[in-house]
């Protein structure tokens, strides 16, 4: 389990991460989403021990990370700007990692390279962006680390490889304690694979928890009333996150229990009502709108 407590990091006068306290449970895929500049990469770099926190703590299985090699052996970090040793091949890269990760599974790595159609003796510098990403992910999986911290893990992967990677994660999680932490802008991808989500905005964490619970707590409701009433009044004391009205058709996003919402809307005998499924993207937009990140303003 990774726990952060009041984690803060400032670059010069710019706060990159402000007092994040969250928990990443092991054995589940944790998705880290956020607006641009929200601090996703910084948060991952703090988790991986690359950066020293200004304040707060990062504990991995109860131990601090920064400058603790034993703890860092539990983590494998894949940066969004990947780096490979100059002129190295996938096999040489793995051999290098093996120096630091004693339980690196070389045979499995070679097999996976074959499965993914990657030539182990070809220089990585000649690989495409997606192929480099595959090499990094395979190194991470075979390193034996319990936590794989990926910044934009699926960036550059084609749909087939993306699916293969997801399967690989799933298989790995089934076999041993393995927790991928994935930061991405691609919310649809994360929605497919993540069980837990952390939503970052302006250096702070807006929301963190089980994705299904999140979906259970936020609902999108479309309805048409016989007699117009203020939406806030109708659903009080629930929190209305957004309210859009086209003619008499209301589309409302609100936080609350599904049954309670339905009972409230039924009680006013609407002409029509329907609970629509919310995507992670919609949850993301809703939550960030609440704190002032209004997509309408950006578009208009």
């Amino acid at each position: 389990m990774i726990e952060t407590s009041n984690l803060t990091k400032t670059f010069g006068i710019l706060p990159a991460v402000s007092g994040i306290s969250t928990t990443i449970q092991e054995g589940a895929v944790f998705g880290l989403v956020g607006t641009n500049g929200a601090g996703k990469s910084t948060f991952l770099r703090l988790l991986s021990g690359v950066l020293r926190p200004d304040s707060g703590t990062v504990l991995v299985d109860g131990s601090p990370v920064y400058e603790h090699p034993d703890t860092k052996q539990l983590l494998f970090y894949i940066s969004d700007e990947q780096y490979f040793l100059p002129g190295s091949t996938p096999l040489e890269t793995a051999a290098h990692y093996r120096l630091f990760y004693p339980s690196f599974q070389m045979e499995r790595y070679e097999k996976l390279l074959d499965n993914f159609g990657l030539d182990g003796r070809r220089k990585i510098s000649t690989f495409s962006k997606g192929m480099k990403k595959q090499v990094s992910i395979l190194c991470g999986i075979c390193s034996g680390a319990n936590y794989l911290l990926c910044d934009e893990a699926f960036d550059g992967l084609d749909p087939v490889m993306r699916q293969a990677t997801k399967s690989l994660f799933a298989g790995e999680m089934a076999q041993r304690p393995f927790t991928p932490v994935i930061a991405s802008h691609n919310l649809r991808e994360l929605e497919d694979i993540c069980e837990h989500i952390g939503l970052l905005h302006a250096g702070g964490i807006l929301l963190s928890g089980d994705l299904d619970n999140m979906k259970l707590n936020i609902h999108k409701l479309q309805f048409v009333l016989k007699e117009e009433r203020p939406v806030q009044e109708l659903f009080a004391p629930m929190e209305v996150l957004s309210d859009k009205c086209q003619g008499r058709l209301h589309t409302v996003t609100l936080r609350g229990n599904r049954e309670e919402i339905e009972s409230l809307v039924v009680s006013v005998r609407p002409v029509f009502y329907e609970l629509l499924p919310l995507t992670l993207e919609e949850i993301f937009i809703c939550e960030t709108e609440v704190v002032g990140y209004d997509i309408q303003k950006i578009i208009l």
Binding site: V50, T71, K72, Y83
Partner: peptide
């Protein structure tokens, strides 16, 4: 940054 991240993420003092 990329090389710094690489070396400083490795489990080594």
């Amino acid at each position: 940054r990329s090389t710094t991240d690489y070396y400083h993420s490795l489990p080594i003092r």
